[in-house]
């Protein structure tokens, strides 16, 4: 009986606990998803894509998918509706952006070859050998690095403004 009472009191103390309010913080992948959405403003795609949809593909299991889907419901790219697609590694579907999960970062070289000059921005997540843009975390904040040569290889143009915000430009 004593154990049960202790449990009750623990539950009470727990629900009564009120730490102070911290600063502006968020889930890592919510922030990363917003970074991806913000990158769109700073990247130029070839104008040959007449689609009415802006497609973001995610290769591999990644927690970024769900916040991206929420953004897709809330936002548009110009007049284009945002579509989020989960892609298998063997999928050869056109997307405006392809995000490669951490678990699939060892396939980046193959993917960059496959999508060369197709006008697809490839973004990696904490990859040891980064893609065109690589999302990283430093001191509890999200940062990104850019590989200009890979951008050229993919056929997308990155604005100089974005380059100035990157922690590293290769």
């Amino acid at each position: 009986m004593r154990a049960k009472l202790v449990l009750l009191l623990l539950a009470f103390v727990f629900t009564a606990f009120r730490p102070g309010i911290d600063g502006n913080e968020g889930n890592e992948y919510q922030i990363k998803a917003m970074f991806v959405f913000n990158f769109i403003k700073y990247v130029e795609w070839p104008t040959t894509n007449p689609s009415t949809e802006f497609t973001i593909g995610v290769i591999g299991e990644s927690e970024i998918t769900e916040p991206l889907e929420r953004i897709a419901v809330q936002k548009k790219v110009g007049e284009k509706k945002i579509i989020i697609k989960k892609l298998a590694l063997e999928d050869d579907t056109y997307c405006d952006i392809i995000i490669v999960s951490r678990s699939r970062s060892n396939k980046l070289v193959m993917l960059e070859k496959r999508y060369a000059n197709k006008g697809i921005l490839i973004i990696s997540d904490e990859a040891p050998n980064p893609a065109t843009i690589n999302l990283i975390t430093r001191e509890s904040k999200v940062r990104f690095e850019i590989n200009v040569a890979l951008a050229k290889n993919c056929g997308v143009k990155i604005s100089s403004q974005l380059l100035t915000l990157a922690v590293a430009v290769h």
Binding site: K141, L162, L165
Partner: peptide
């Protein structure tokens, strides 16, 4: 949030 503002957001 803009990109500049996002750069200041801490991860929970």
């Amino acid at each position: 949030l803009s990109l500049e503002e996002l750069l200041n957001v801490e991860i929970s």
